[in-house]
Amino acid sequence: MVLLEADKITKRFGGLVANDSISFEVKNGELLGLIGPNGAGKTTLFNCISGAHQIDSGRILFDGKDITKLNSYEVARLGLARTFQIYVASGDLNVLENIMVGCFMRTSSTAKAKSMAEAVLKELELTDIAKSMMNELPVAVQKRVTMATALGTSPKLLLLDEVAAGLNPSEIENIMTVIRYIHEKMGITVVLIEHVMEMVMKLSQRVIVLDYGKKIAEGDPSSVVRHPDVIRAYLGERYAREYAATRPDSGA
């Protein structure tokens, strides 16, 4: 069953075509990777899907509903949650309260929102820092909190925008466990933008590659990294060789 269907999405900023007629779909229960060089239009695509930008042409269906013209808060209420790339909460909300804001989408009762948020904290093993402020936490934990906040809205689909950026290898390992948990145990469909190739290769069931606003490749991770356009535009010859060397068994 298809959860999200993007049909020829085009978004222009003045003369720049940030998303050029991009079509793809996300199946229910899938974990999809979205890669591409800086400025390829990945985050713009997230913004278009989540309703932060209104697209110039094309159509977006989510869970069988046309969400092309909807605002981001309306899209969120349908069950599409996202995280943001550059976001450090500086306000006076602590971790628990941050997550409660998300939970309030599903309930108007403070007590219920609190118990929902506590449940999310428990699932992501964040209970110990419930009362901490965001800016007191290390970056890796902040990223987990932003994911928890999005999960507070009980989404069907979660868009993750570079949650591993700026993390060290062990932290990346950790965040991968969290994403797997969200995907497998919580049963939430995930689309992730990521530059850390190792993570994309290990996690994704399918990968889409963008370059200059266009979709240049789509497929399972091992075939995408062999795609000549992807190598030219993004990965480079070296990565392809190294990848082939580490995974000699993985394909023709």
């Binding site: 989540s50 932060a52 605002n71 981001s72 808060y73 969120a76 209420r77 949650a81 996202r82 943001f84 976001y87 909460a89 500086s90 306000g91 006076d92 909300l93 309260e97 941050n98 409660m100 804001v101 998300g102 309030f104 989408m105 309930t107 108007s108 403070t110 929102a113 906040t149 999005a150 507070g152 809205t153």
Partner: peptide
């Protein structure tokens, strides 16, 4: 302060884009 609206407003003060992504009609 403790109501849904209060929480939403504090989230809006922090970052309106994030608030919207959490289903808040800012």
């Amino acid at each position: 302060r403790k109501s849904r609206l209060g929480f939403q407003l504090r989230s809006i003060r922090d970052n309106e884009d994030v608030a919207r992504s959490l289903g808040i009609n800012v």
